[in-house]
């Protein structure tokens, strides 16, 4: 016997109503919830005045992490000019070889355990700035969190990543490997 289409329609309406109710309630309390707005919220950076001071916690992958700093393109440029930085490209080797920020070395986050020796030799007096493609890629943030857990104090994430860099710096990307420099 064919089912009554009005019965199915009623059930669909109930499912949709329940879905909207549950989803918006959960989103309201979710630590990584979506901001409902007409404008896309801008990326949040720390202001220059707190850059080298006690920094706020940032949320990465739904968990509060230990004070990983998020920096903007302008802050990255300042660090590059002052040469107080070691850039770390957390993407895959292929992505890195296609183009990366000049001076960056490649430590793919998903294989970072293969780079233990290189990581242990990172300078402690310089900012270790990790990046990947840019949102929604979280590899840079995850790499930064890993470095923070290894007691590196000056760790930051350039969340805009290579996409943001290309927008600002046009074609100023390096190809090939700079690991081992």
């Amino acid at each position: 016997m064919k089912k009554n289409s009005s019965e199915i329609g009623k059930q669909i309406l109930i499912i949709l109503f329940l879905t909207f109710l549950v989803s918006f309630c959960v989103n309201f309390i979710h630590p990584r919830g979506v901001t409902i707005s007409f404008q896309k919220p801008p990326l949040q950076f720390v202001s220059d005045s707190v850059f080298a001071e006690t920094l706020p916690q940032v949320s990465i992958g739904g968990e509060e992490t230990q004070e990983v700093t998020v920096i903007s393109y302008e802050q990255l440029i300042r660090l590059l000019k002052e040469k107080e930085i070691q850039l770390i490209d957390a993407r895959s080797k292929e992505g890195y070889l296609e183009g990366h920020i000049p001076g960056a070395i490649n430590i793919p986050y998903e294989q970072y355990f293969d780079y233990e020796e290189q990581i242990s030799n990172f300078p402690e007096d310089k900012w270790l700035v990790c990046y990947c493609d840019g949102p929604p890629c979280e590899l840079g943030a995850q790499m930064a969190e890993e470095l923070k857990l290894r007691d590196f104090k000056k760790v930051a994430v350039y969340r805009g990543g290579i996409n943001d860099w290309k927008q600002h710096a046009s074609l100023a990307v390096s190809e090939g490997s700079e690991n081992g420099k």
């Binding site: 989103n27 919830g33 707005s37 404008q39 896309k40 949102p135 929604p136």
Partner: peptide, 28 residues
Amino acid sequence: ILNPASFADQVDNYRILPYFLVAITAVV
């Protein structure tokens, strides 16, 4: 559901919907 903010970025990358509908889609 574990990471709605990242999912919103993914939906936004398709460049089909205005951000308001991207946010609603990512939630619902």
